[in-house]
Amino acid sequence: MAEQVALSRTQVCGILREELFQGDAFHQSDTHIFIIMGASGDLAKKKIYPTIWWLFRDGLLPENTFIVGYARSRLTVADIRKQSEPFFKATPEEKLKLEDFFARNSYVAGQYDDAASYQRLNSHMNALHLGSQANRLFYLALPPTVYEAVTKNIHESCMSQIGWNRIIVEKPFGRDLQSSDRLSNHISSLFREDQIYRIDHYLGKEMVQNLMVLRFANRIFGPIWNRDNIACVILTFKEPFGTEGRGGYFDEFGIIRDVMQNHLLQMLCLVAMEKPASTNSDDVRDEKVKVLKCISEVQANNVVLGQYVGNPDGEGEATKGYLDDPTVPRGSTTATFAAVVLYVENERWDGVPFILRCGKALNERKAEVRLQFHDVAGDIFHQQCKRNELVIRVQPNEAVYTKMMTKKPGMFFNPEESELDLTYGNRYKNVKLPDAYERLILDVFCGSQMHFVRSDELREAWRIFTPLLHQIELEKPKPIPYIYGSRGPTEADELMKRVGFQYEGTYKWVNP
């Protein structure tokens, strides 16, 4: 592979701008107003304001973009700056750019259920340069409990009458099928589907988006991507930290609602779906819905739930269990780990287990898709061969690698495990991989909904998990304890083995 010439960040961002501006969906010269509902909250200060700053800094926003914060707290732009700027990672050389960014910011205080507050917000936006005809993007960085009041008031008082209007809704989209349907029906009564952007930030990850290209742009994968060759698929999300004093919020939802029903299920769809007619948003989402419709409700015998306990040999936070978090209700049975087996009941995947695993306070930070292939028929190497695996590593250190057998150097035919490896950090030294939120917010500006969740996708996802969630809430089974920093409950490994996964433990990928 030829040595790549190092590029400056300015040059890299210039390439990104060229890609972005050559499309006809990006209205570079139009006025846009980006409204952050819930501007005083954690999500706004840690993710949304920093993301908008990065896009502005790199010249990736339309030229005439204004940012308006809205929340109940009586704040000023200076207050917003004070709480969000520490997350910007701005350099001293960017000081003038930073001043320009905050000059485009404003803030309006108001209630979430008060019509007069929204009329005041609308008047404020109209007073901005060309504000009355601007395109408006409303980001709901809010708890779902206020979605209905907020969307109703936005629709009645704050819509642009000339430009387009788009609304970005953060997960969780309800707690179960019934609450999700209620919320979807409410929002759909106010906005068209092409105006609604239900954001799952995992769909903005580079390697998640790469799944489609790997599958449908490489001839070698087509013939082997089926039940005849693939023994099982494992989708993993692991965090090495616990709730760390923020367990009160987590306890309301648990690990299945927080990660599995959305992030992991979306990745499953991209692995299992048929080739779409095109890369058009609805063509892709149509195929994802077909996959979900082929999955039956989760069966309790295919589920393992766990909850982390303190590690007596650990240090600091590792010595504390979930129930030691003062914000967690006493005696909570909320799971911090889950392993679930699903089956896609169609011709391509009949009988292939899709194993979804996620948890907190585990032994490493990792998100990946792992396809394990069947054993080689007619073994001539005296059971020395391990199964081939194709691994798409989402985070950290984005990579695609194939675990395969090669001859060990020497005189004899002794096979050993090795890999074919594409590590993004080595291959793409001159490429700026956008943060997931950067990519998705740019998608909203461009009107691309491919990486957002459609209402029928959402409904099918909740259909699969709601009976299990209701059973857990009714019966309150005690989750299996696992030690902070471990791989999780051993019962999860036993479940995976029972459905056909072979864990060798003899080879570990190392970032080159």
Score class of each variant (00 low, 15 high):
residue 226 N to A: 07
residue 74 R to Q: 15
residue 144 P to C: 00
residue 216 F to H: 02
residue 197 Y to E: 03
residue 53 W to C: 01
residue 125 M to P: 02
residue 161 Q to W: 13
residue 240 P to W: 08
residue 7 L to C: 04
residue 111 Q to T: 13
residue 82 K to Q: 10
residue 94 E to S: 07
residue 105 N to L: 11
residue 113 D to K: 11
residue 209 Q to H: 05
residue 118 Y to F: 15
residue 29 S to H: 13
residue 139 Y to A: 06
residue 255 I to G: 01
residue 109 A to H: 09
residue 212 M to N: 02
residue 196 I to R: 01
residue 150 V to I: 10
residue 189 S to P: 10
residue 52 I to V: 10
residue 233 V to A: 06
residue 225 W to K: 00
residue 222 G to S: 15
residue 73 S to I: 02
residue 210 N to T: 09
residue 93 E to L: 09
residue 135 N to V: 06
residue 162 I to P: 14
residue 70 Y to E: 00
residue 25 A to Y: 15
residue 219 R to L: 07
residue 58 D to F: 08
residue 44 A to K: 03
residue 88 F to S: 06
residue 164 W to C: 08
residue 178 Q to A: 15
residue 49 Y to D: 02
residue 174 G to D: 00
residue 163 G to Q: 04
residue 41 G to W: 04
residue 139 Y to F: 09
residue 252 E to M: 12
residue 102 F to H: 07
residue 132 S to E: 14
residue 130 L to A: 14
residue 166 R to N: 05
residue 141 A to H: 04
residue 27 H to I: 14
residue 99 E to K: 11
residue 129 H to P: 15
residue 111 Q to Y: 14
residue 115 A to L: 15
residue 233 V to W: 01
residue 41 G to H: 06
residue 13 C to R: 14
residue 116 A to N: 14
residue 41 G to Y: 03
residue 119 Q to T: 15
residue 47 K to N: 05
residue 96 L to V: 13
residue 201 H to S: 01
residue 235 L to A: 09
residue 62 P to E: 08
residue 148 E to V: 11
residue 49 Y to M: 09
residue 65 T to M: 11
residue 174 G to P: 04
residue 60 L to K: 07
residue 178 Q to I: 12
residue 145 T to R: 06
residue 234 I to C: 12
residue 228 D to N: 10
residue 174 G to A: 04
residue 87 F to Y: 12
residue 231 A to E: 11
residue 37 M to S: 02
residue 165 N to Y: 06
residue 146 V to R: 07
residue 98 L to N: 01
residue 53 W to N: 02
residue 204 G to W: 02
residue 182 R to P: 01
residue 215 R to F: 00
residue 17 R to Y: 10
residue 207 M to F: 01
residue 111 Q to A: 14
residue 100 D to N: 14
residue 78 A to C: 12
residue 69 G to Y: 03
residue 166 R to W: 00
residue 243 T to A: 06
residue 138 F to S: 00
residue 42 D to Y: 03
residue 80 I to N: 05
residue 61 L to Q: 03
residue 62 P to Y: 05
residue 74 R to I: 15
residue 177 L to Y: 09
residue 12 V to T: 15
residue 204 G to S: 05
residue 94 E to H: 12
residue 122 N to H: 14
residue 149 A to I: 15
residue 51 T to W: 03
residue 155 H to R: 14
residue 38 G to D: 01
residue 149 A to Q: 10
residue 234 I to R: 14
residue 91 T to K: 12
residue 171 K to V: 04
residue 227 R to S: 13
residue 59 G to I: 00
residue 53 W to A: 00
residue 163 G to R: 07
residue 134 A to M: 10
residue 128 L to D: 05
residue 169 V to G: 04
residue 9 R to H: 09
residue 93 E to M: 11
residue 189 S to M: 14
residue 88 F to V: 06
residue 57 R to W: 02
residue 181 D to S: 09
residue 136 R to F: 10
residue 115 A to Q: 15
residue 239 E to W: 04
residue 211 L to P: 01
residue 119 Q to V: 13
residue 84 S to C: 14
residue 229 N to D: 10
residue 137 L to M: 13
residue 14 G to F: 09
residue 181 D to Y: 06
residue 58 D to E: 13
residue 198 R to A: 05
residue 90 A to Q: 08
residue 127 A to S: 10
residue 27 H to M: 13
residue 78 A to K: 13
residue 213 V to N: 05
residue 144 P to A: 07
residue 210 N to P: 01
residue 249 Y to E: 03
residue 151 T to Y: 03
residue 201 H to E: 08
residue 171 K to Q: 03
residue 124 H to P: 01
residue 82 K to P: 06
residue 74 R to G: 15
residue 161 Q to D: 13
residue 110 G to K: 04
residue 75 L to W: 12
residue 192 R to N: 15
residue 88 F to C: 10
residue 235 L to Q: 02
residue 238 K to Q: 00
residue 81 R to K: 14
residue 156 E to Y: 13
residue 164 W to T: 09
residue 107 Y to V: 07
residue 205 K to V: 05
residue 246 R to I: 01
residue 104 R to K: 09
residue 103 A to I: 11
residue 44 A to M: 01
residue 216 F to K: 04
residue 179 S to P: 07
residue 153 N to Q: 14
residue 71 A to H: 02
residue 69 G to M: 05
residue 79 D to Y: 07
residue 239 E to H: 04
residue 32 H to C: 08
residue 120 R to K: 14
residue 110 G to M: 02
residue 21 F to V: 11
residue 223 P to C: 08
residue 135 N to H: 12
residue 177 L to D: 09
residue 172 P to F: 04
residue 107 Y to A: 07
residue 129 H to A: 12
residue 44 A to T: 05
residue 111 Q to V: 15
residue 63 E to K: 15
residue 28 Q to C: 14
residue 199 I to A: 02
residue 89 K to P: 05
residue 229 N to Q: 14
residue 32 H to L: 05
residue 61 L to H: 01
residue 191 F to H: 03
residue 221 F to M: 15
residue 163 G to V: 05
residue 164 W to V: 09
residue 89 K to M: 10
residue 104 R to M: 12
residue 235 L to T: 05
residue 18 E to V: 06
residue 151 T to K: 01
residue 238 K to I: 01
